[in-house]
């Protein structure tokens, strides 16, 4: 199993395509950082425009923590597309290249094979997130420094002490890892059904885009199905940045306002992953390899 995983990872990281995603993230993050570095004040004014009328918010709002949050908000919508690029290619790509024939005539059980493939896709996903974390969090902290964090949420403003932020990012990235693994599982599952990689990649992207739109639109009909869409649960990482307050409305360091939302969403996502991987194993074990 370990050998299989090594081989799969070797294949992933020897392919030029793999690095498209890393380059894309680097470019996106750099552009945003550059923009905020030069015109950050205007962005802050825009974000806080409603509040600026009644409140005077002073200090270094544009610090590394804030920039990272802004980056995650923008990028965690796009990263799934980059994950689809590899995950939805895992089986279909091998089928297309004809290498699946060679692989499956080797003395390796299909169960182990597909599990190794999925784990490799997961490792790729995690690497991508770690890279994102390095760029979005650590580089932002280097460029913009640290400080208290202000997050406008729907209906209220949250201020987090600088010392109370870092662990939230760890939580957020762990959650994002779960969310992105779900995306990988969707792409992976779809990759079983095609002998070219474009189909599953486009299908995965379409599913994510459509589901995200449904999750965002506030139309009563869609609201009913929202809780069942995995994209609705993928944004629960933001809950790490909401804080409980005491009876005097002072925030309590180290707390999260709705930990149950995080847990619930994490469970929903985990169920998706398990279901999709199980379905993948089921389908793959019975699949006639005709490619």
């Amino acid at each position: 199993m370990w050998t299989l995983l090594q081989i799969e990872l070797y294949k992933i990281f020897r392919r030029p395509r793999t690095y498209i995603a890393f380059v894309a993230i680097t470019v996106l993050v750099s552009i945003v950082q550059l923009g905020l570095k030069s015109d950050g004040k205007e962005y802050i004014d825009f974000v806080l425009s409603d509040l600026k009328n009644s409140l005077s918010i002073e200090g270094k709002i544009l610090n590394g923590y804030f920039v990272c949050y802004a980056l995650l908000q923008m990028l965690l919508v796009n990263v799934p597309l980059l994950i689809a690029l590899i995950a939805a290619d895992m089986i279909s790509g091998e089928a297309n290249a004809g290498t699946l024939r060679f692989l499956l005539t080797k003395p390796v059980s299909r169960f182990e094979f597909i599990l190794a493939k999925f784990l490799a896709a997961t490792v790729y996903t995690l690497m991508l997130l770690i890279w994102l974390a390095i760029l979005a969090l650590f580089v932002s902290l280097l460029l913009f420094g640290t400080g208290d964090m202000i997050i406008p949420r729907n209906g209220y403003l949250v201020q987090l002490k600088a010392s109370d932020v870092f662990w939230r990012y760890i939580g957020a990235f762990c959650f994002a890892a779960l969310a992105m693994t779900t995306v990988a599982a969707v792409g992976f599952f779809l990759s079983l059904f095609a002998e070219n990689s474009i189909g599953p990649i486009v299908a995965t992207m379409s599913i994510i885009i459509v589901a995200t739109i449904l999750s965002t639109m506030s139309i009563p009909l869609f609201n009913k199905i929202k809780p069942f869409l995995f994209t609705t649960h993928m944004v629960a990482w933001k809950e790490f940045f909401d804080i409980k307050v005491d009876e005097n409305n002072a925030s309590i360091a180290g707390t999260v306002q709705h930990p149950e939302r995080i847990t619930r969403s994490a469970i929903v996502l985990a169920i998706h992953i398990v279901a999709l991987v199980t379905a993948s194993v089921y389908v793959f074990k019975r699949k006639d390899v005709l490619s």
Binding site: R14, A97, T99
Partner: peptide, 30 residues
């Protein structure tokens, strides 16, 4: 399958890898 070697239809391997890397990769599965 440990005692079987096969080439089915076109001998498709990983085009982005060298002959050596391809051979080693598949051999490791055995």
């Amino acid at each position: 399958l440990q005692q079987v070697g096969a080439v089915i239809e076109k001998p498709d391997v990983y085009k982005y890898l060298s002959a050596y890397d391809n051979l080693k990769l598949f051999a490791r599965l055995n």
